[in-house]
Design a protein around this nucleic acid. Structure first.
Lengths: 206, 206, 206, 206
DNA sequence: TATGAATGAGACTTCATTCAT
DNA sequence: TATGAATGAAGTCTCATTCAT
């Protein structure tokens, strides 16, 4: 039974989640501390623990929230068009997510590098289902001769890798270029190049 | 005065570094503990600290060792051939590194997600120099009409992202496919697909 | 000036005291928490603290209430009859108290095992006075040849020990026999046996 | 596998157990703190936790140690003689235990008043078996006409209650009489009176 | 070289209590 | 009268590090 949440409760819980996302993004679950989160959220540690009883509970809430945003994000994507439109749209969606939820993306990355103790089941079930669907679509394109003969799963990994890279390795990218996805021109250039190469490598020459 | 290192010392130090690489790969610097490293290395904590005085010293040694392997790896790479040969070779090199040093790759990933407190300077100097050189080469190709007009920096990021993905997200990949780069067929298929798409997207149609 | 206490106040205070008696009986003063008491009393913690300002205040009220009941209980007891009647009556009284106020008895037991920080003075004054009186009565009986020559203080301890045992070690007794003093037959049998032995050991054979 | 314990380890573990027995005797498991135990044992808190990893582990060790002493104690008891000898001997044994292990006795009392979360199983199995045996013996005496017709279980409870009372309510007894079982005369007088009454109440007049 | 013992700092969490409404 | 929100103090436990042998 979901407790009724007052206005201030919603606000404070979100403050905590935002701070926690940043901290867990940097240090992972084990490395991040409640002190850091409390300070960043601008509240005392016991007050924070009034909203979330344990560190793990905060972590789970962060994962869940990020997951929801990610799923919602993927729902925006449509498989209806041509391969070019569909892939292009998918890259748009993923890169947009990396721009708007860089910290969330890093929380996922950390979780997976820790061996995905929480998300493993989910990855093996829900995500696998999504991937299987996409794989079928791509296989259909190949069989149909719409695109070059490509191994679908590695194409999917490639798109994920590239789009998430801009979020997960933001520090490195910023150190090397002085830019992040927040920079509009840089964002456009990244999107353009990624699409250029992937579509160029996947589509048949007309 | 460099202490003379006995045979056993060298062996034990390497045992520590191997264990530490695994632990820091999973939990990052903050999240990993000396206890975990000592246990994995099969020695007592005080004995471990006889070889490395502090946790940070271990971490630095891990980073340095991984870095050396990575640089050595890159030295094997030759820019002398055609764009196709050069890029193909680069992908080979990076993917091979991901296969042989998956944990090391994840230590880097963690370090960068923590904001690269140790490596930031290095990234901004040594790595930037390497990247600048590569950028020049690619620009030359473009100007020369050898390849399509591509933004060099995003091409480089793309190759990094894709090749490292197989190391950094190993857990996710294994959960989805049941395979890792250690699987020879999977490794070959990954390499083939990555080259196919990137080269296909970069090279001009003949 | 004694605040006028409304009906609901009286009811709620009693709800708190009942819950607190149970909790302190189980965990002692230090081990019991206001949360536990509040939950058992079915009210929020701040509301509970509206009736009793501090944990200690609750504890004192519990001790006082139990004490009052105990004293009232002892007033029912009459020394007027024969030794047999008097002792028999005393055992009745004490055992009845154990049955009706098992939790209260345990609160006392805890208090005393903690070193009686609150009750020590009372024990040394009021209780000592009562014990001294009883001692005199018993000594009189002995001198008079009404009962066997018995050390009065140890007789008193014995009656206390036995009667309180059924309250304080209720869990043990229930585990061993499946019964408590709430069970009418068990209660009667306990009373009968206790009287049989003590009276048999104290009274002269006729 | 029992770790080999060095000399100092044994000494320090015993220091901890002794202190913990006193603290848990006073405040119960919930109420007693590691700080108190560490201070009483004369060592730092982390050092104490080097020997026992958790508070519960200390508590279990205390219960186990006390239990062992208690069982060893009961082994000294012989059922071989007449009812008089046997009961007399039993009282001796139990009272001696109360004198030598007053704190341990109180730890048990606390455990039982908390509902015996740890010992419940043990009480229901091992102790029940012991009690059943004793019950049979007593029943035999009754059937044989050696003693008066007494309910065995309540006789056993009575002996336990009385003998343990001197340990568990030591504070009250000392406040009222200025004596404890450590006082030799008081000890002898208690023993004499207890035996006098119980034997007087149980045995037939010769 | 190796390890049992020890500890201060700090992390997570609980709890009595207060505040504001 | 009632309760959601907040907090300082304290309690349990972990961890990097040091010491002694």
């Amino acid at each position: 039974m979901q407790k009724k949440r007052s206005r201030i409760q919603i606000i404070n819980q979100q403050k905590v989640l935002d701070a926690a996302t940043d901290i867990f993004a940097k240090y992972g679950f084990r490395g991040g501390t409640i002190d850091q989160i409390a300070e960043m959220a601008g509240m005392s540690k016991p007050n924070l623990l009034y909203y979330f009883k344990t560190k793990k509970e905060i972590y789970l809430a962060v994962l869940e929230q990020t997951l929801n945003k990610w799923l919602q994000c993927l729902q925006d994507w449509q498989v209806t068009g041509t391969p070019e439109e569909t892939i292009s749209n998918y890259i748009d969606t993923k890169l947009e997510f990396s721009r708007n939820h860089a910290a969330g993306s890093r929380v996922f990355a950390n979780e997976i590098m820790e061996g995905a103790p929480i998300l493993k089941t989910l990855l093996g079930e829900d995500l696998k289902r999504l991937v299987d669907e996409d794989t079928k679509v791509i296989k259909g394109w190949v069989k149909n001769g719409d695109i070059r003969p490509i191994d679908p799963i590695h194409l999917i990994f490639m798109i994920w890798a590239v789009t998430q890279h801009y979020a997960d390795f933001e520090t490195q990218i910023e150190t090397l270029t002085g830019k992040t996805l927040q920079d509009e021109d840089f964002y456009k250039q990244a999107k353009k190049t990624v699409k250029q190469i992937i579509l160029g490598g996947v589509l048949k020459e007309s």
